[in-house]
Design a protein around this nucleic acid. Structure first.
Lengths: 194, 194
DNA sequence: CGAGTGATTGACTGCGTTCAACCGACGTGG
DNA sequence: CCACGTCGGTTGAACGCAGTCAATCACTCG
């Protein structure tokens, strides 16, 4: 939402270094967060220490807002993936804004609906399919976010692709070279183009 | 939402046999659906014909509503899993209701938020983990839905458990007997208790 | 230069899948 | 009543692919 409104209603801005946590899995959801600049990822770590990245957010986007509406602990942790500036507003104030501005309330319906759509797609692509399929689905997702139709440089490391697709780094690397051989994408100087 | 409101605003009720589709993946989202009695599942089928069940809904719940808020095709299909009676209301009317009743609009924020929570949990449990872990997570989910704390009869076939967890039937069967041996659950007369 | 991070490769292993066969319960129709 | 078909559940054997482990390379930065 508009940052002026956030500030008017008492939001503070926090400068965050890369790798700082905004909240941890299991915490109570007490604040609304929105990114001024930078990026944040929501993720889980399983028993064996393997990470799964649920989603990454960039400038202008909010994150974790859904968990303000229900009476549950955060099911994910949030960490900044770049140096960032984050707006932070108390849950109470956030609901006051929703009460005050009806159009903002409606905007949040759309935001939540998009999240559901995105998670639905992710689940269907990731759970049942081959590594090739998973990785291509993720790359499609990247291109959609970049709002590009042509060939783009994928701004993720192999490890990050692995974390998004539930695969291992080595599997990602081997699958990428297969896909490269099949001309589904290109690798130049270790950079990925899709 | 309250069925009287639905009917007042022009919803129709449809009697649906088990196995009938409400909508198909790729369709435009044009109606709001709510279950009077019965149950409906949302699912995908991948290239090899393997199904993944995204979620199952029961009496009183709505489904697919999130996709009314965004400009995308349905990413899942909906099929009734029992004989059911379904309320069906046009998208236009649905939005008129939201405009008219502010508390209903807020209710939908909570409904969508719950969906996100549930999908987030599912993703973290299913993607990274062992069959045992996946199945136990699904059984926990069942118990939560049943709103029970004690031992319950799991009302799903092995195949349905497989569809929810992204495993194969045989793997489910073998894992269940391991879990039974570990006293994590019990199997009596082929019925599952957890 | 040395440390650190990400990318890559090879060899091996194990687990979930695949395929095929069979069982047990139930319902239906002659 | 029995024969038969169907459906869910079960078991065994073999396979193959992603995971695992370990070593090495490439590049950047202090």
């Amino acid at each position: 939402m508009d940052s002026n409104i956030l500030l008017t209603w008492g939001a503070i801005t926090k400068k965050i270094e890369k790798g700082e946590f905004l909240f941890h899995e299991g915490d109570d959801a007490r604040y609304y967060y929105q990114i001024e600049t930078g990026s944040v990822k929501l993720f889980n770590v399983n028993d064996e220490g393997k990470e799964f990245t649920q989603e990454t957010f960039y400038s202008g986007e909010c994150f974790g807002e859904a968990f303000l509406f229900i009476n549950e602990k955060y099911p994910v942790s949030a960490i900044s993936t770049h140096q960032s500036v984050i707006y932070k507003l108390s849950k109470d104030r956030f609901f006051q804004i929703l009460n005050e501005y009806r159009n903002i309330e409606r905007d949040f319906l759309c935001i939540l609906a998009k999240r559901i759509y995105s998670k639905t797609i992710t689940a269907s692509e990731v759970i049942n399919n081959s590594p090739e399929h998973r990785i291509l689905a993720f790359l499609d997702h990247c291109r959609k976010i970049a709002n590009a139709s042509g060939c783009i440089l994928i701004p993720y490391t192999r490890q990050e692709i692995a974390n998004h697709t539930g695969l291992r780094v080595e599997t990602v690397i081997r699958t990428l070279s297969v896909l490269s051989a099949k001309k589904k994408l290109s690798i130049k100087d270790r950079k990925l183009y899709y």
